[in-house]
């Protein structure tokens, strides 16, 4: 019974991929790939998703450490807020980002007045939108890693005279490396597929804010359905290669 259900589940995941492969316009695939707009969309997707993964590591790991190691009132509320974007529809996230960082936003308005820069309609805006939805995945993965590691290693280092920062850098980080990798991959793949928050907050302009998922959506609507299918396939290939490669290398295989 378990195997039957699992088989149904696997087929459910596999069939849409088969659909993409079967219906792909193989004859004109090369032409569609060489298309400048597809290339720039894919480039933008890679750059923005990697940048937001880097941002997630820079800010998310410290937050995960605070959540795992420190005791303070309001901690569960903080954790709730930090993981909210995972539950929130991305479009809502996009609107919320506009109200905070938009040209008329709470933070965006004084920022625009002071520096003359705005996030909406810029590549930076895409990175912000992707970080907003992707960072929680890294935070919870790293927090889980921190909680499950043997805290005695940290304590031993502390008794030997190492400061908090040294312990974190030399003992904690190497020990939670698998969680770091897993969290980064989760965050990166979420950022790569991000659509709703991006089109709402950053807009949709080829070369600046039109990432691959946005290009696919717009292509499907216009006369370029073939290009959309080819680009979708390419996105599937890239994601699959990364996920399979990283799994075998860092996560101990299947």
């Amino acid at each position: 019974m378990l195997v039957v259900l699992a088989g149904a589940c696997a087929a459910f995941f596999l069939l849409p991929l088969v659909g993409l492969v079967v219906r792909a316009p193989w004859g004109s695939a090369a032409g569609a790939l060489g298309d400048q707009s597809s290339i720039s969309a894919l480039q933008l997707s890679l750059v923005c998703s990697l940048a937001s993964t880097a941002l997630a590591l820079l800010f998310g790991v410290p937050l995960a450490w605070v959540l795992a190691r420190l005791q303070f009132p309001g901690k569960s509320l903080l954790r709730g807020i930090a993981t909210l974007p995972m539950v929130l529809p991305p479009v809502v996230g996009g609107v919320a980002l506009l109200l905070a960082f938009g040209r008329r936003g709470l933070v965006g308005e004084p920022l625009a007045a002071a520096f003359g820069v705005g996030l909406p309609f810029t590549t930076l805006g895409v990175i912000v939108a992707e970080s907003f939805v992707a960072m929680p995945f890294l935070v919870i993965a790293v927090e889980a890693g921190l909680r499950s590691m043997d805290i005695r290693f940290e304590e031993a280092a502390r008794t030997l005279g190492a400061g908090r920062w040294t312990v974190f850098r030399r003992v904690t980080l190497p020990l939670i490396a698998p969680s770091l990798v897993a969290g980064s991959v989760l965050a990166w793949s979420r950022a790569l597929g991000e659509f709703g928050a991006t089109i709402t907050f950053a807009g949709n302009f080829p070369g600046t804010t039109q990432t691959a998922p946005l290009a696919i959506y717009i292509d499907l609507d216009s006369q370029h359905a073939e290009r959309a299918v080819v680009l979708s396939l390419l996105l599937v290939l890239v994601s699959l290669a990364v996920l399979v490669g990283l799994r075998d290398r860092f996560l101990g295989g299947a």
Binding site: G102, P120, F121, N204, Y217, I218
Partner: peptide, 21 residues
């Protein structure tokens, strides 16, 4: 050159009413 290419007309009105465009 537009700042964005919206997928439907209401999105353009929204961007203007929010002050983004």
């Amino acid at each position: 050159t537009p700042v964005s290419q919206e997928d439907n007309v209401k999105a353009v009105v929204t961007k203007v009413s929010l002050g983004e465009a």
